[in-house]
Amino acid sequence: MIPAAFEYHRPSDIAAALSILTEYGDDARVIAGGHSLVPMMKLRMAEVPHLIDLQDIGTLRGIDVGADRIRIGAMTTQHDLINHDALTNAAPTIRETALQIADPQVRYMGTIGGNVANGDPGNDMPALMQCLDATFYLTGPNGERTVSAREFYFAAYATDREDDEILTAIEFAHPMPGFAYEKQKRKIGDYATAAAAVLIQRDGERCTGASIAMTNLSDTPVFAEDAAATLVGTAVDSAAIAAAIEAMQQAIDPSEDNRGPVPFKRHIAGVVLQRAIERAWSRA
């Protein structure tokens, strides 16, 4: 657990960070909370000759709950998300999800930006961001651009972010009222065996809108568009839920690991989705 030697950079604004990133190219990486990258460096699986710490860049922090949209700076920690009352009022699913990430020590350091930009299929926020239809803000040498969370993930650690870009913020509209993030894991601190993010809108006994995304059931988060569509217009009864689960099963592609074999993961995916839909429906 001894890393190779590296240079530590601590810029105080985005421009400075970008210039270091441009200067060192593939030899440089930005670090947010560091809870994925630093262990890999200490295990000598990742060699980062130039580490760019973003924590002094004040503009990357903060939560802005606007009238239409909610914007969260990339360096906002999970702990900050959990304890932000206005955010919890507007989008309680953020708090419910953040509380299921790792443990309190990690949540003091871990950031939402790091969680979504990392591209590890085990991260929880990416599926939630897809469920919320969030937009990611990326800044690079050619300025700022946006990309939808639903278009961002290609494969494990492969995302739409270019090596010389920094993810600066995420933004999403006020979500549907019914929400749930249901996660099964082996123990505190573990990645999900399977997890489901669900948002539901209801009008009386009819579902008028739904969004579903799944965590750690493929090499990317899985936005299960068809599964959500099966719920809309139904009374979210057991037949509708079964249809949604069936549609979700078509979208996921879990692989075997120490959490269990593929049939188990598929089964758990069904269980967590059912529970998430039921809870979200009851809250809608």
């Binding site: 890999m40 650690y157 492969a158 090499d219 692989s255």
Partner: peptide, 17 residues
């Protein structure tokens, strides 16, 4: 080796990529 111990869960997806 270490690659398998630490990255086993990501190998299938990576190979595909």
């Amino acid at each position: 080796g270490k690659l398998a111990q630490l990255g086993g869960r990501l190998i299938q997806g990576t190979a595909k990529l």
